[in-house]
Amino acid sequence: MSVASQDTAVKTGGIAKVFIYLILILFALFYLLPLYVMLTNSLKPLSEITGGNMMSLPRDWTIEAWLSAWSTAQVGVSPTGLQPYFVNSILMVVPAVAISTVLGALNGYILTKWRFRGDTLLFGLMLFACFIPFQIVLIPMARILGLLGIAGTTQGLVLVHVVYGIGFSTLYFRNYYASFPTELVRAAMIDGAGFFRIFWRIMLPVSGPIAVVTIIWQFTNIWNDFLFGASFAGLSAMPMTVALNNLVNSSTGVREYNVHFAGAIMAALPTLLVYIVAGRFFVRGLMAGSVKG
């Protein structure tokens, strides 16, 4: 976490401390409960769910539901499991994150070290673009993707996510580079170093932390996106979130809750893993995205 580790000077006494711990633990249970329920019930056979208590641990532990969710469950019209959609999401996320991060780094570099008249206005326009309700772009975007011949394809989704991801990645890099001493860049210019050379030799080597923050932020947002996936992916490029929703809300047949849960955890796993491995950077990204300017 990016907060300073300085403690408060407020002192609390013994009994108050007990209450505080009690409340904090209760809230921890509140946040953990849905995950616990999903996990335990994804490992039960269906009969144990419909007849039993959601809080109890499985009597017959089984990974049947996981196998079914991955490779045989009915998603929409075909019994393919979630596997192809997981792959779709990966194919969409990797290029979209890479491109938007590189563009963000270059934009941030230009907006702080190669300033020109009107750059703050441009940045403001980019920043506002982060917060628009995307309903305002759905109709023309559908038209444009059709005109470009990439409607219903992964390339189309990559384009959409790059375009609406630039704002945030630029914001991150701009704020980070703003605190980098401009004198160093000036000195390099006087020594005859050009635009790309300065970027490559001076800016990039110090960009590690902000690159991690940006990549995690973009990855989480794009992986978790539902609106664009539901609007533009069609059947063949459908990402994981849309497939999960189809799996859970399909109206045909018996509702296999254990399979739904296994699927939900699969959809959550990549972002959850990133959070567990690099939580510190995840939080920093959230904060940087919230405290703007």
Binding site: F27, V37, M38, Y257, F261, A264, A267, A268, T271, V274
Partner: peptide, 19 residues
């Protein structure tokens, strides 16, 4: 406290709908 923020709303919805 913070991990739910890493999840998709679709996952959250699936869990709570059942709960």
């Amino acid at each position: 406290y913070l991990y739910p923020m890493a999840l998709s709303f679709i996952v959250t919805g699936t869990a709570w709908k059942w709960f």
